[in-house]
Simulated assay, not measured.
Amino acid sequence: MDRLDTVVGELDALVDAGRLTGFVCGVRQDGRTLIAAGGSRSPDGSALDPDTVFPLSSNTKPVGGVLALRMVELGILALDDPVATLLPELSAPRVLTRPGGPIDRTVPAGRQITLRHLLTMTAGAGWAGEGSPLTVAMGERQIAPGPYPPPMEPDEYLRLLGSLPLADQPGVGWYYHTSSDVLGVLLARATGATVADLVADHITGPLGLADVGFTADRERLPTSYGLGPDGGLRALDTVDRFAHPPRFESLACGLTSTVSDYLEFLDVLVGGGVVLGPQYVEAMTTDRLTPRQRADAEGFIAPGCGYGMQVEVRPDGVVGWAGGLGTIGYVDRRTGRGAAVFTTQSYDVPGTAEALDTVWALLR
């Protein structure tokens, strides 16, 4: 508890200095969870409650990884089968002649995209660099990586994505985010169920996580903030976005959760529990990056770290991920200790990164 008190003091100091609006943080080990909250739901607003429900943005991705590997465990999918069987939109992709190059200069893909590629962010689809022609084209079609789900139905999303070339050959480079959205479409088509139902049936239901989902009670959602053009806080429309069922149930960035429920989910990444067999947890939490892919992932993963299947893999046995709207959750697989810090402001706001970095003290 002393460690949590120390971190809460550091976070409270950020609130007092005007660098952090509000936070909820917590630790969990051996089935015991400790949660603390500070700051407010909005500047000069009411106090933030420990059971506040936050938009997870990219902290959704590890949930998608667990769900996909559960489908492999059940024999519904195989890691190295081509996804084109279920996603014909991706059956004959073109590939840029060079990453970042013009989108009309392409060659045929040399191999099929597999589930393994999607899980490891090596399908060739994803963040292709600020201002690159492919990034611009994805933005024009509203399918570029971002903190919110695509504003369209899954079939339309796949049609639009399939109309563009890949940034790289499948299995060669590491390209963030888009593979996780494709993953959700794949799982839904493979099972005939909605992504929301799959998450409920295979993860949140068995674990008893009542506050993880694609929608949340608007009264429990805080106002989230980004950086405004004047350098001040700019209110985001996260409450309206997550108070209603989305058109696209994104496994890249679509879930919401309390800190308490997310900490319970992180237990799965230690031993699998009732959700996933240990061999699949091991597969998910093993570094998969080649040297080229590790270079591509620079800026997304920390120096000296790797990437498994939808999680960062640190050399000390710690795995997890963070979300661009200001959340982070990791677990130490050696000790079983999990930690999370959720804030009400995005990474671009000064003070957010400093707040999220306190998660490492909580894990010690």
Rank of each mutant, 00 (worst) to 15 (best):
L11P: 13
D12K: 10
A13S: 14
A13R: 13
L14Y: 13
L14S: 08
V15C: 06
V15G: 03
D16W: 06
D16F: 06
D16P: 05
D16T: 14
A17Q: 15
G18A: 07
G18P: 07
G18N: 06
L20Q: 12
T21N: 12
T21V: 15
G22N: 11
G22T: 13
F23Q: 14
C25G: 10
C25A: 15
G26R: 04
V27H: 12
Q29I: 09
D30T: 12
R32S: 10
T33F: 13
T33Y: 11
L34Q: 15
L34Y: 15
A36K: 12
A37N: 03
G38E: 11
G38H: 04
G38Y: 06
G39H: 00
G39I: 00
S40G: 09
S40H: 14
S40V: 12
R41W: 08
R41E: 09
R41V: 10
S42W: 10
P43C: 04
P43S: 07
D44T: 10
G45L: 01
G45C: 00
A47K: 01
L48R: 01
L48E: 02
D49C: 03
D49P: 03
D49I: 03
P50W: 02
P50E: 05
P50M: 01
P50F: 03
D51Q: 14
T52H: 07
T52R: 05
T52L: 01
T52M: 04
T52A: 06
V53M: 05
V53G: 00
F54Y: 00
P55M: 00
P55C: 00
L56D: 08
L56W: 09
T60S: 11
T60M: 04
P62M: 07
P62H: 10
V63Y: 05
G65R: 06
V66Q: 04
L67T: 10
L67K: 06
A68P: 00
A68Q: 04
R70P: 05
R70M: 08
R70Y: 06
M71H: 06
V72E: 02
L74R: 14
L74P: 04
G75D: 15
G75T: 15
G75A: 14
I76A: 05
